[in-house]
Design a binder for these strands. Sequence first.
DNA 1: CTAATTTGCCTAATCTCATTAGGCAAACGT
DNA 2: ACGTTTGCCTAATGAGATTAGGCAAATTAG
Lengths: 190, 190
Amino acid sequence: MARAGLTPERVVRAGADLADGIGFEQVTPSELARKLGIRTASLYSHVKNAHDLKTRIALLALEELADQASAALAGRAGRDALGAFANAYRDYALQHPGRFAAAGFRLDADAAAASAGGRHSRMMRAILRGYDLTELQQTHAVRLLGSVFSGYVRLETAGGFRHSSPDSQESWTEILDALDSLLRNWPASP
Amino acid sequence: MARAGLTPERVVRAGADLADGIGFEQVTPSELARKLGIRTASLYSHVKNAHDLKTRIALLALEELADQASAALAGRAGRDALGAFANAYRDYALQHPGRFAAAGFRLDADAAAASAGGRHSRMMRAILRGYDLTELQQTHAVRLLGSVFSGYVRLETAGGFRHSSPDSQESWTEILDALDSLLRNWPASP
DNA sequence: CTAATTTGCCTAATCTCATTAGGCAAACGT
DNA sequence: ACGTTTGCCTAATGAGATTAGGCAAATTAG
């Protein structure tokens, strides 16, 4: 039989596309093999097992997300940078819901260490340098921003804001304004 | 053989306990049946299928979470209420990680409508009445708070802050102070 | 208090998956 | 062309989800 010419990279990319199509949870070796037109067992030449497949899709998504955010961030500072980063994040999630869900996959320690997670926090710190925060406040702020962005987008893609007014878009920009304001007036610790 | 005396409620409660023990994702009919000492097929007298089981655990968790938050909130206002609510939320998640993960399970429309979701947003609005916000700003703020709380706790339980200083606890209280400050100085829309 | 009914739990059977072992032939380096 | 690698296949195993059909314990009706 003719070879399909697959590589681990192609397989993972196809897995990511599949995730965007049917949801990250539903990505399984058998489903992916069906999509690729090969037998399930043949996938095991390219990935170790189902968990490995999911981990690799997660790593791909984190990498792509970091690339987009990095590009959006170039040459910006302050509220401008904050908005660019946040929008890159949200736009990626809306365009690639499966990949975005994958980015939230719980990685084991070594996979996490090899992930683009470091790039993400470095970018956030770069944004926060545009505000007047102590080192410690910066850490708190990184955690806050990470929580808001991931939390908001997750609720939004789950449909949480779909049937209520106003538009999610409206809340999003208002929230970015609010966060900008907060970062410019971060309260002193009691 | 002697009957185990199960009911849908007992089964779901056992499922929630199992989730706290091994993680919500790993809760399956077969695993739950093993824990209950019955055959897998026997579970199907109590729940329709695996998805139904997960949905019911999610509804239980949302209900419990609302109960705890409601109790914590009683008689408080302002920053006090904000902290009580947020801590109830976070404490529940740390004590019941599986249930908390269940609370984030994507419910279909009718399950969502029958869930305690409404109680949650009503409580948040009650808290926000202690701040001087317009109706519209209140909606934005509800969405922000929901995002922060769910996002933060999710990152924390995923181990996101475990190997970095400062303590998660420290960031948490600082973030609550920051949110309180933000709600007292919500910026006017441009 | 017995009889009729309900229903909790079981066995058996089917289907789908994940995963491993072993083999063949296409692709590739020499 | 020749041997090696390796992408993909078939076959086999074991586990999980789900359905159908049966029996006996619990419950209700008379």
